[in-house]
Amino acid sequence: MDGFIHQILSGIATGGIYASVALALVMIYQATHHINFAQGEMATFSTYIALTLIQAGLSYWVAFVLTFIISFVLGVLVERIFMRPMARAPELSSVGVFVGLLLIFSSISGWIFGYTIKTFPTPFDTGKPMLGGFLSGHELGSTVVTLAVLLSVYMFFRFTRLGLAMRAAAYNPVSSRLVGVRVSWMLALGWGLAAGIGAIAGCMVAPIVFLDPNMMAGILLYAFAGALLGGITNPLGAVLGGFAVGVIENIGGAYIVGTELKLTMALVIIVAVLVIKPSGLLGRTVQSRV
């Protein structure tokens, strides 16, 4: 039983990371109906930046905040330069640009930082197990960080003027423009925020899975699964889906299929959602008028 509780808790810890990436995906999907296939590689690149800053002698949390800011700017730039001209382009063009970004970020990471697997520091006390031995210090710390991130994103969208404007821009661009919301800048901010959240997720997961240029490929897959499971049209659903996938992954890995098929489990979740309930648990069913 203790083992089971341990699996659930550490599932929640990794689930928080999936939930953050899923949220980043859904934010962009809601506003533009694009799925950012380069999200993982962008986050990996940000994590390398964090590692560089830490190795340059900055304290962990200063580097953490700086990384968030740099990633935010990077996200805004990517939107301005690459995605904005693609706003009215066919689906294939935007997917092509995402795949191009994936290749570019992955090779820049490899080029600058090398392909050897690196360890990434954790700011949390890893010595003693927490919560009666159910979680490692890092797992507990990263859960707290991801929950804080998710909560502040919620507060931002719920209680600030800017958050409201961003929601409006995603929900109804035409009307928002009429009332004076600068829709295209709202999209850019959304991209910045998504990139920043991705960077935090990268920093939180890197101590567990170690840092290499393909670190986030698997994480992105779980985030996809989480977003679909919760409903890709619903941010809250995506977050809950991310946590659910974390728990399912851990329990499945421990008791059912073994650790070697964890990625396949994400694929199975994706296919199962598409077969049984394509709109996800909390998503709304998209109907098209004929």
């Binding site: 690459f82 001209p85 693609m86 382009a89 294939l92 063009s93 092509g96 640009v97 795949v99 191009g100 970004l101 994936l102 290749l103 570019i104 992955s106 090779s107 820049i108 490899g110 080029w111 392909y115």
Partner: peptide
């Protein structure tokens, strides 16, 4: 040039193609 170069070339070319010659 570098182990990473093919990926970078592919990526840049892919994006250029999408913009200039779809």
């Amino acid at each position: 040039l570098s182990k990473a170069a093919p990926g970078a070339v592919y990526g840049i070319l892919l994006i250029l193609m999408m913009f200039a010659a779809p």
